[in-house]
Amino acid sequence: MSKLSELICQYCAHRNTGADSRCGHCGAPLRAVAHAVETVVEETPAKLAKVAKVAEKLGADAEKIVGGGYPRWQWRAVGVAILVLIVLAIVVARSCSVSLPSLSSLPGGMGMPEQITPEPLRSAAACQPLDSSGKSEKCVIAANHPMLFGGIAGGRELTFYAEHAQPDRLADAISRWRAAGGTTLVDGPVYVAIGPSATVWYADTRAGLKLETGTFAGKTGAQTFLSRAGLVR
């Protein structure tokens, strides 16, 4: 089919540019579009024939392995069934995925700080490792970030330290915080307290996460931060 004929409307014979998909005169699809549909229709029988050949070969192979004694049409049916199962297996493999639990939810608090820090806090901060192990980080939240809206950090950027700590280190930290005379808000598998100088102390013994923040403008600001950061609900 020539390019010239493809630019002519199949209904009103109006000439159109090569960039048009529909006739500018009557709105009908151009020949190029119709030709594409016809091509698909014409190619379908050939593709079905190829599928049939594959199914017949699978049936023949099955007949050789098992042996004769059954009509050939039954072996062809077996080939079709095998082919269908293969196609279904491919479709299922592509459409389904197994989602593994996050490292922070696994027993023993597996994972680095970036994997066990709550997402609201993680996305608000810029962090850098403090050592080669990658288990301790220094993080900074910019003064103009919405996390600190309302001047809860006194108009300054906020620094906090995140650590993936072993149970004994977490227990030592919690004991030290209790002795420092802060205000305990949560005391259990998760320990949350506000220090005398309006700092936040946080320890999750299940995930192995330990957090210590800089100074807030006051106790109310520290409590607001805990809520915004997803550390308490």
Results as ranks from 00 to 15, higher is better:
S2H: 04
K3G: 13
L4N: 11
S5W: 11
S5N: 04
S5Q: 10
E6M: 13
L7V: 09
I8W: 07
A13T: 12
H14V: 05
R15Q: 11
T17C: 14
G18Y: 14
D20K: 03
S21V: 05
S21N: 00
G24T: 10
G24A: 05
H25E: 11
C26E: 08
A34T: 04
A34S: 14
A36S: 10
A36F: 09
A36Y: 07
E38M: 13
T39P: 06
V41G: 06
E42N: 07
T44Y: 13
A46K: 12
L48N: 13
A52E: 15
K53C: 12
K53H: 09
E56Y: 08
E56D: 15
D61F: 15
I65G: 01
V66D: 03
G67C: 03
G68P: 05
G68R: 13
G69C: 10
Y70G: 00
P71A: 12
R72Y: 09
W73F: 08
W75E: 02
G79A: 11
L83G: 00
L85D: 14
V91G: 08
V91Y: 03
V92G: 09
A93R: 12
R94N: 07
V98L: 14
V98E: 09
L100T: 03
L103G: 02
S104T: 03
S105M: 11
L106V: 11
G108F: 10
G108H: 05
M110T: 09
M110S: 12
G111H: 08
P113W: 07
I116T: 12
I116C: 04
T117G: 11
E119D: 15
E119I: 13
P120C: 14
A124V: 00
A125T: 01
P129A: 10
P129W: 11
S132Y: 04
S133P: 02
S136H: 09
A142F: 06
A142V: 09
N144T: 14
N144Q: 14
M147F: 11
L148C: 06
F149G: 07
G150W: 10
A153H: 14
A153Y: 08
G155W: 15
Q166P: 03
Q166R: 13
P167W: 15
P167R: 13
D168H: 02
D172T: 15
S175I: 06
R176K: 11
R176P: 04
R178Q: 11
A179V: 07
G181S: 08
T184P: 06
L185N: 01
L185E: 02
L185C: 02
V186N: 07
V186E: 05
V186Q: 10
V190R: 15
V192M: 15
G195L: 13
S197T: 11
S197D: 05
S197A: 15
A198E: 02
V200D: 01
A203F: 01
D204R: 11
R206D: 11
A207L: 00
G208T: 14
L209S: 05
L209K: 15
L211T: 00
G214P: 04
G214K: 00
Q223I: 07
F225K: 06
R228G: 02
R228N: 02
A229T: 01
G230R: 04
L231F: 06
V232T: 01
R233I: 02
